[in-house]
Design a protein around this nucleic acid. Structure first.
Length: 599
RNA sequence: GGUCCGGUAGCUCAGUUGGAUAGAGCAUCAGCCUUCUAAGCUGAGGGUCAUUGGUUCGAAUCCAAUCCGGAUCACCA
């Protein structure tokens, strides 16, 4: 249990004993961290009790403070400042905390339990390579899955690949028409990029055909429907659905190229999955659920045979679920897939990492499943995140304004290289070590940049301004870690020492403010990790880790570890920095960010 | 028009069951390397927390209204 939680309990106990006749259940007990300008470590707010107990804040504080000092082992002093009871934690508490946890590689984690959670993320289309916006999705999903795991859940990382549909046929048609048999192997172009190039080519050709038809006197709407290349694509989609073997083998070949490309990108990013679903295998699902809903009378049918759900009572609209000809729409297959996932893994919760443009869709999805009485409905949670935009607006692959993910990675790794070289920090590294280091720094910076803000906020990225490696960045945290490792190397202290390493430690002198601040921050990590899961927000780990690194840097500047005043101080500080490095590594690991031992 | 999300320093953002004088980073300015890695540290300036009202001991935080920005409301995916 964290100190804050212990203090809360102690305060509750104190109030119960001191005022047995007063019901204080309505008055919330708030324990905060004491502001730095006041003496103390934790603060109990007295105002809520003042009225109920008809006591002056100062007197009440004195009574509670004295009780806590006497009855618990937690505090060494207290101080009352205008309605706030500031409590000072006993130095020995900090020391026993450090002794208990300094080498615990799983510090902050919760013990395993049975809750099964699926996190679906990435979910790319197989007609183009990943862009910068997809990176936010991938990093968020991966981090969220890892955070939930660390909180004891059984987690399935899932990827639902959008591998069929008209957009896929567009790339295929353009390739047939223009590629003259080019392949990734022959051109040396990464498979997803090659296919993406033909998707762009389709749109160029389509645009030209529409213009030509308009020039010949056709109106624009008709021209957009009549353009031969578009008709070809639609024709191809029909053939695909009928299982035409030529179309299917072209489709399999081109998707194969894309998967090769994606695999490389995923490997580079350190992104992985436990289960991959393909829409080509799930797009027919959901029809049964809809028909069943009609039988139950939850849905209704129009004269043309189409099936609908009426959500006007919920403040939403009517939604089509099955066309008159019996074919499904997007929502239909999502209903089916939700049920499929649930049945595959007996999920307690199913998290969808999807951009906020689909908020409405996800709201409707959950609502329909609920109306249909499907048990998977309650567990559905949409982890909605804001889109990444350029200063000029949204990225559009058709207009070629996208920032490509592979390019972005290369750029960041390149930036890491130049900055390392400029700082003259390449000595003592082999070429292999250097290239690994640049990956660590470049990818770390990229991940941190996309994870450090609240997911639901949209972000604007200006490609002209490179991502910073100073300040609130992964680099800052990596640097603090490398500094700690450097000290430990010189001291002959392992990164994860044996638990007996500081067995003989006993505290004789007062803990100094900078030392206490670090211990204080370390003590709060379990709460932060729990909050990140509860709020589905990895950025909390970014904020916390940055603060911890900042505290370490100040500490490092103020006190020497190697040349500490005496052995006692040296041991105390070694414990502090060993644990700081440990917690930083743990938090960053959950985000997929590596921390180097040298940089 | 309906629903949802956002508006905090010049810029990017923290601020989570309502708590003390609203905090970081970047940028600007002034200091700090003979001493464990200066990718760092210390300090300064910079605020009508979109606006107005309400709730109360106390509001950036809760409520109401208004303004601004965005998303969405397809027999598209």
């Amino acid at each position: 249990m964290t100190l804050a939680a212990q203090i809360k309990l102690a305060a509750e106990d104190a109030l119960k004993h001191l005022f047995p006749n007063v019901d204080l259940s309505t008055a919330a007990i708030t324990v905060n961290q004491t502001k730095p300008e006041f003496k103390g470590d934790y603060t109990l707010v007295l105002f809520p009790f003042v009225k109920l107990l008809r006591q002056k804040p100062d007197e009440l504080g004195k009574i509670i403070g004295n009780y806590l000092l006497e009855k618990t082992e937690l505090f060494s002093a207290f101080d009352i400042v205008s309605g706030f009871l500031n409590l000072t934690i006993r130095d020995t508490c900090w020391v026993s905390f450090l002794l208990n946890h300094f080498n615990d590689a799983h510090y902050g984690e919760k013990s395993k339990h049975d809750k099964r959670i699926m996190v679906e993320y990435s979910s790319p289309n197989t007609n183009k390579p990943l862009h910068f916006g997809h990176l936010r999705n991938n990093f968020l999903g991966y981090a969220m899955a890892e955070i939930l795991k660390a909180n004891g859940n059984q987690v399935v990382k899932a990827n639902l690949v959008n591998d069929r549909g008209i957009h896929i046929c567009k790339s295929m048609i353009a390739w047939q028409r223009y590629a003259q048999g080019d392949t990734p192997a022959r051109t040396g172009i990464k498979g997803d990029h090659l296919v993406g190039d033909y998707y762009v080519k389709f749109n160029d050709a389509y645009k030209a055909e529409v213009e030509q038809l308009v020039a010949e006197g056709m109106d624009k709407d008709t021209a957009e429907k009549e353009a031969p290349i578009m008709k070809d694509a639609q024709d191809m989609l029909r053939k695909w659905e009928m299982g035409d073997s030529d179309v299917r083998s072209l489709w399999a070949m081109m998707n194969g190229w894309v998967y090769d490309g994606f695999d490389k990108t995923y490997a580079r990013l350190g992104i992985d999955f436990d289960k991959v679903y393909h829409e080509s295998e799930t797009y027919l699902l959901g029809k049964d659920i809809v028909k069943e809903g009609l039988r139950k009378g939850v849905l209704y049918q129009k004269e043309d045979g189409s099936m609908w759900v009426d959500l006007t009572e919920e403040g939403l609209d009517q939604k089509l679920l099955l066309r008159g000809d019996g074919t499904s729409v997007y929502m239909t297959q999502d209903l089916g897939t939700a049920k499929l996932k649930y049945n595959d893994y007996k999920l307690d919760q199913s998290i969808y990492v999807i951009a906020d443009e689909q908020n409405y869709h996800m709201q409707v999805l959950k609502l329909i499943l609920k109306k249909l009485g499907e048990p998977c409905a309650d567990g559905i949670y949409h982890l909605s995140y804001g889109m990444v935009e350029l200063p000029s607006g949204r990225m559009k692959s058709r207009e070629g304004t996208v920032v490509d993910a592979d390019d972005m990675i290369d750029e960041m790794v390149g930036l890491a290289k130049t900055q390392t070289e400029e700082a003259g920090k390449t000595e003592g590294f082999s070429a292999d070590e250097l290239s690994k280091l640049y990956d660590t720094i470049g990818l770390g910076a990229l991940k941190f940049y996309l994870l450090r803000v609240d997911p639901k906020k949209k972000m604007i990225f200006d490609p002209k301004e490179s991502i910073d490696l100073h300040g609130f960045t992964a680099t800052f945290i990596q640097y603090a870690h490398a500094r700690i490792c450097s000290i430990l190397r010189k001291e002959g202290c392992p990164l994860q020492p044996d638990s007996t390493k500081f067995q003989s430690f006993s505290l004789k002198r007062e803990i100094l403010p900078a030392e206490k601040k670090l211990a204080h921050a370390l003590e709060q990590y379990p709460d932060v990790l729990e909050d990140a899961a509860k709020e589905y927000n990895p950025s909390l780990l970014c904020n916390y880790s940055f603060q911890l690194a900042q505290l370490f840097n100040s500490f490092y500047d103020e006190h020497s570890i190697s040349k500490a005043e005496n052995e006692e101080k040296k041991h105390l500080r070694l414990m502090l920095i060993v644990m700081t490095a440990q917690v930083l590594r743990h938090a960053m690991h959950l985000l997929g960010i590596r921390l180097p031992e040298k940089m």
